[in-house]
Amino acid sequence: MVQKRIYQRRDLIRLGLLGGAGVGAGIALPQLVRYFQAQSIDIPTTTDAPPISGMNPMTILRDFDRGTVKQENGRTVREFRIEATTSTLQLNSAVNFVSWNFNGRVPGPTIRVNAGDRVRVIFLNRGGHAHSMHFHGVHAAAMDGIRPIRNGTATIYEFDAEPYGMHVYHCHVSPVARHIGKGLYGAFIIDPPGGRPPADEMVMVMGGFDINEDGKNELYAFNGIPNYYLEHPIRIRQNQLVRLYLLNMVELDPVLTFHLHANIFRLFRTGRSLQPDEESDVVTMGTAERHILEFSYALLGRYMFHPHQDVIAEKGCMGHFDVVDSTGRTGDAGSHAH
């Protein structure tokens, strides 16, 4: 109840309908509390997580692009520059895949804004083919990103970020499955007014690669490179809240699940609520479906995550969390259990 009242006030302030020191003081305290809480989030350092083909999935994991902030006519505008390009991804020691992508990486940049911000995306297509950027969320038809943007040309997408949640953007030029399968997608996060509680936040996008263009995926990955987090586990702190922004962008397979080992996560469907919708250790996701998952591990050790379509998991869509204590040790799985 208290929380809800704060959000109302924030909406009013955001719109410039309320002002004055009294109200300002009213919201200063929770902001301050949140600030200090955020300072307390302690992300373990990771060594030995090398880049592959010029992109690093370990960096992509916690990399949120909040754009260049401008104030125009009393409004916050977040400006992003996105370029469609082609680049070769070394998916494994034998497979080089010509990807079509945004800003040289698969998935594209994680675009993150606050509800109500004005979003301006300056999109340049240097990808050879016609491409576009279609954002999920609410916007005018003219901003829907269906119109192909010719190679060598640019366009500007501009809209208000609504509603808050975990969204997605992708190229919408036909055949869409090929354009997405080549890598033209990314996460689009709209934070709720007032934000979410502090956590170790990360983004994972599940993707599929049809390397021989036979209409079937031969390889899969979390964040672009098959098996990257299997070989380079994601280190997380014991008992610290993890907030996972999870997106399924696998084309050609109708549905995947996401399964987290030895834990139960809280699920916020499409990130559209501040209270969890349910708890589980498996969630089923169709293509372009996305959710926010929250969890923490009490016990040190190494834990897997993967779709429970195990054939898919074993073609590159698997990863590990290493749960470490405050000194950075995973301990022996089990012996630290208490």
Partner: peptide
Amino acid sequence: LFILPALLLSLGLLAGCSGQGA
């Protein structure tokens, strides 16, 4: 409250960036 941003958006579209939509 959400009606207002919608109004601002439509005004903005007409005034500032009408060209966004060919």
